[in-house]
Measured scan of single mutants.
Amino acid sequence: TRVETATETAWISLVTALHLVLGLSAVLGLLLLRWQFPAHYRRLRHALW
């Protein structure tokens, strides 16, 4: 049971790290898009909202 718990903890930390990385890359990508294509971003936002 001790090994299982350790594996579970490792998986949880791995998944958390993955989610953090994905979230950060998504935010960075959005910022980059907004910085590179302001007109396109505004049009996209206008279409979405």
Rank of each mutant, 00 (worst) to 15 (best):
Q36A: 15
T9A: 11
A17Y: 01
R2D: 13
A17E: 02
A47F: 09
Q36L: 11
A10N: 02
A39W: 09
T16S: 10
L20G: 08
A17C: 13
S13N: 06
V3S: 02
H46E: 14
L31G: 03
S25N: 10
L48Y: 03
T9W: 12
S25E: 03
V3G: 01
Y41L: 09
E4A: 11
R43L: 08
E4F: 11
Y41R: 05
T5Y: 04
G23Y: 05
G23M: 13
L32D: 09
L30E: 00
A47C: 13
R2H: 13
S13Y: 14
F37I: 09
L31V: 10
V27T: 11
T16G: 03
L20I: 14
A47T: 10
H46F: 09
T5P: 00
A17F: 08
Q36Y: 15
T5N: 02
L33T: 07
R42Q: 13
L18D: 05
V15Q: 02
L24V: 13
L44E: 01
L33N: 07
W49L: 08
G23D: 07
F37C: 09
E8V: 00
L32K: 04
R42F: 07
G23R: 00
T7N: 13
L48R: 07
V27L: 13
L44Q: 00
G29C: 11
R34T: 08
R42Y: 15
T9S: 12
R42I: 07
H19E: 06
L20H: 04
G29I: 11
I12H: 06
T5I: 04
R2K: 14
R42D: 14
T9N: 10
V15Y: 01
L32A: 11
W49I: 09
T16N: 06
H19D: 00
P38L: 10
R45F: 03
V27W: 10
A47D: 03
V3T: 02
A6W: 03
L14S: 01
L18A: 04
R2T: 14
F37S: 07
T7Y: 12
T5E: 01
T9R: 14
L22T: 10
F37D: 09
P38H: 15
W11R: 02
V15T: 07
V3R: 01
H46I: 07
